[in-house]
Design a protein around this nucleic acid. Structure first.
Lengths: 354, 354
DNA sequence: GGCGATACTGTTAGCGCTAACCTTGACGGC
DNA sequence: GCCGTCAAGGTTAGCGCTAACAGTATCGCC
């Protein structure tokens, strides 16, 4: 109390000084400005519009900010500028590699431009998507990336009432007002089925799980191709709402055997299942492709390594993520993207299993 | 201009009315309040502290808000309340199932409590982690979840200068000031090696990739176990900085054969690699486990289905995510969590490959 | 020498929300 | 009848930042 009086004794009459840092204990822009001896707006510009500040001063500001541990407050910035620099991304699942790689494409495109992704997982449920849209709208995202085209009416209302640009990934939309990047799942189903027909298979089964719109589109492609060949038979289609897994694929082989089906080939709606099927065929001594051909979809890494290797269709998911993000960046800049509907195609990969 | 004059003609002298909606076109709390005929704070309470508003009025507020498409502005809320309701989560990789499942645990714990996760991917680089920490601090997260304990000095400074509670996942920390949830990777390596020794293998190799701290800890466990048995030989350890993949595992089998190593068992630092190794052994006609035993780590789904099935160690990653998030929730509530260091253990899974 | 152009920095006023305090009215107990 | 209490809602101020406009030098040019 006598010698080391602290602030109180040192500046008894001076009370002009503003609080050194905010309520939260963090340094604010005003703190940095005061320390450098300039106004807050110049600090703001040093960060956001560097070309407007003399290089020397700018450096001094950055150094001071660093030494004070100053970090800009994103909430305040968003509030004042009406730009959140945030993009909301909704995907159906995180455990499905397909969407994770799409995310990687999105990140690689957005981060260098200063945008951040807010990731939401819908678990393939439009209702959950609606809930997530509501939640994420609170962040006033500058843009939105959605998976698929299956949204609830309320979700559509939110999105259309909103100014934020939106791009749909995976499926392609025909509506000229909407933007979409993806590939035709129906064509994928058709491609694979045609391949199986060409290889001489005639009793081709289809296993659909999860029953999300993309799976059903593949099923459509399969059905159309077989109908055209006059070989479609509803009895060879299995529809299960369960999530996809290796386990389920293996179980399906058991079921096919138990039911004594006459399939000479089975087209699984994705690679997880097909891999499980291959594993189980190996266990049970079912010769693939002689006794039974197996086909998948998506080309997961392991599909090139199973015994036998798996015939599948590769989807350009990383590219879909990149292009969707690029399209969104254009929109957020107020530019019209080169195209509103971008089909990135599919790659058919014939391997040993067919 | 004559009959349907709109606002202008309807209220020529009245200019007290505030703008109907903000700059961004979105309805604001004030808009909702005006419509209901109350003040903004009551609207705020109707959302955040419902027990303070009469149920009837509250319902009227919520209905009106809904009909106007009102969504609270998170940035304004965060600024005014100094609470962002956001948790920053940093993980090394999104393509690695281990971290994705950890994320799922975190989500399941945080979302019901109203918190949102901001996910950052460090790509196993402390420098990138530092960059991400800086970026995400702008969001004033109420809490932070980090993977591992390998942070740059600058990152440590940021974190300690910060008030935000932080929990470390995966590795366990001995420092009593830090909070961590995980399991002992070293013990995992030791467990597996001991198992191989018990099965009679004497020339056990180890393949380490990525070389992140967790991999190196497993290697330590392996080394210690072998040293105790007097069987450690540096020549049987392969260290590769490449990311883990099935492909690399297969390539390693080729390399082991080419180098004519004398290993009777190989412990791969994770299941991706081990699966690739099993696939390649099958291709090359190497009998597992008779000719060569193969072991993995993490227990990925496919490991129960390969031929032969893979001996591995299951890590409680989902539980790690949940518990880390729970610990963080306690901290954010100002409570002391039951324990500051939570070891969730490991499960050894013996299968056919050893 | 006066005028405009250019380059840099400052002032003012809010963004939309909530913490902290304040008002109002109803009720009850002695 | 007075006072305290409580419930329900309102007022005020300000979170930390930036848009929009406003200076103030400096320079060049006719």
């Amino acid at each position: 109390m006598t010698t080391r009086g602290g602030d109180g004794t040192a500046t008894p009459a001076v009370k002009t000084r503003k609080p050194r840092s905010s309520r939260t204990g963090r340094a604010t822009m005003a703190d940095v400005a005061e320390r450098v001896g300039i106004s807050a707006i110049t600090v703001s510009r040093a960060f956001k519009r560097p070309e407007l500040v003399m290089p020397e001063l700018r450096q001094r500001i950055l150094d001071t900010a660093q030494s004070m541990g100053y970090v800009p407050n994103q909430a305040a910035s968003a509030l004042a500028s009406a730009r959140s620099m945030t993009v909301a991304v909704l995907i159906p699942s995180m455990t499905n590699m397909v969407f994770v790689e799409t995310l990687a494409g999105i990140h690689d495109m957005l981060l260098p431009r200063g945008y951040r992704a807010l990731i939401g997982v819908t678990h393939y449920s439009p209702e959950e998507e609606e809930r997530l849209i509501r939640t994420y709208l609170q962040f006033q995202p500058d843009g939105i990336l959605l998976t698929g085209t299956d949204h609830t009416p309320v979700a559509r209302t939110y999105l259309s009432a909103l100014a934020s640009p939106t791009v749909h990934m995976m499926e392609l939309l025909d509506d000229p007002d909407s933007l979409s990047v993806g590939c035709s799942q129906e064509e994928g189903g058709r491609l694979m089925t045609t391949h199986l027909l060409e290889r001489g298979y005639r009793r081709i089964g289809f296993v659909a799980v999860q029953l999300d719109p993309r799976t059903l589109a593949r099923l459509d492609g399969y059905r159309h191709a077989l109908e055209e060949a006059g070989l479609y038979d509803e009895a060879r289609v299995w529809r299960l709402p369960d999530p996809s897994s290796i386990h389920l694929g293996a179980a399906m082989i058991d079921r096919l055997m138990a039911e004594n089906t006459d399939c000479d080939a089975v087209f699984f709606c994705n690679d997880d299942l097909a891999q499980g099927a291959l594993f189980q065929c190996q266990r049970r001594g079912i010769r693939v492709p002689d006794q039974l051909a197996v086909a998948g979809f998506n080309d997961l890494p392991a599909s090139a390594w199973t015994t036998p290797t798996l015939t599948t269709v590769a989807t350009p998911r990383y590219a879909i993520g990149r292009h969707a993000a690029a399209m969104l960046l254009d929109l957020m800049d107020g530019k019209e993207p080169p195209q509103r509907r971008l089909d990135l195609g599919l790659t058919f990969i014939a391997r040993e299993s067919t």
